[in-house]
């Protein structure tokens, strides 16, 4: 069993402090949802954990299976089993999804080992079928000219192909229509299991009807201010963030 431990993490962009003492432990098999108002640092947290070079870790630690990953480059972290489904996935003109994923799969293989092309395509097609992605997408450039929803589906396809230990999913639900949301959720549920831990960032309780989380956390001003189970999301939806804010004010008063 694996664990991802985020311990009192502080992240700054330039001089600006964004994440301010974020702590959370995710074990494989668990799904944690994070909700929180715009600009509170959710994406910053996810990208900092993934190793974005612009984000400075000013305190705390991130441990994957007990080992700090902060000294590792983004690609090392990825190969160690960390996956980030981006809120805003990049477009890579001229690089087909098939070739891109093939390079990514190859990058995980031992030196001198070659990918088995037939097996690779077989697996790719089965994952595409699972996510109901048209096979002609394999030859399209990664995210290039994709609709918002197509981009999100392509992120989940990559996740399915790369089989991470931990997936940080940043607003994978936004931009998806109702059918696509169900398809993506089904896909994630199929991947769910004892070998995968998930941190799921979302604004909408609706997603949590499909992918039922084990824990729900509210992030505010760079850290977790409230944790609970699925019912917390429902409560949030009913009462809004002001409710959390008031509680917080009371607690710190």
């Amino acid at each position: 069993m694996s664990s991802l431990v985020i311990r009192d993490l502080h992240v700054a962009i330039g001089e600006k402090k964004i994440v301010k003492g974020f702590s959370l432990t995710i074990k494989s098999g668990e799904v944690h949802a994070i909700m929180g108002p715009n600009g509170t640092g959710k994406s910053t947290l996810a990208k900092a954990i993934a190793g974005h070079p612009d984000y400075t870790i000013t305190g705390g630690d991130v441990l994957l299976d007990g080992q700090s990953i902060l000294e590792q480059e983004a690609d090392e972290r990825a190969r160690a089993g960390l996956f980030l489904a981006f809120q805003y996935p990049s477009e890579i003109p001229g690089v087909s999804i098939a070739n891109f994923l093939r390079a990514a799969v190859q990058a995980r293989m031992a030196e001198g080992e070659e990918i088995d092309a037939t097996a690779y395509y077989k697996r790719l097609y089965s994952k595409m079928d699972l996510l109901k992605i048209d096979r002609k997408f394999t030859s399209r450039s990664v995210n290039d000219g994709f609709s918002g929803g197509e981009k999100k589906r392509c992120e989940i396809l990559q996740m399915a192909m790369l089989e991470p230990k931990f997936a940080l999913m940043d607003e994978t639900d936004s931009g998806l229509d109702i059918d696509a949301l169900r398809i993506v959720a089904d896909g994630v549920n199929t991947m769910r299991g004892p070998n995968l831990g998930v941190l799921m960032i979302t604004h909408y309780q609706r997603l949590l009807d499909y992918i039922v989380p084990d824990y729900v956390h509210v992030m505010w001003d760079g850290r977790i201010v409230k944790s609970g189970d699925k019912s917390l999301a429902l409560e949030l939806e009913a009462k809004g963030y002001d409710w959390v804010k008031k509680e917080l004010a009371l607690a710190t008063a």
Partner: peptide
Amino acid sequence: EEMIFYMQQRGLTEGQAMSLAVNGFIN
């Protein structure tokens, strides 16, 4: 840079990412 980070996040080294980006440019 975001594109390179994106590719690195998928496990490609910076060099491999650059290389893919360039090959994509002339594809």
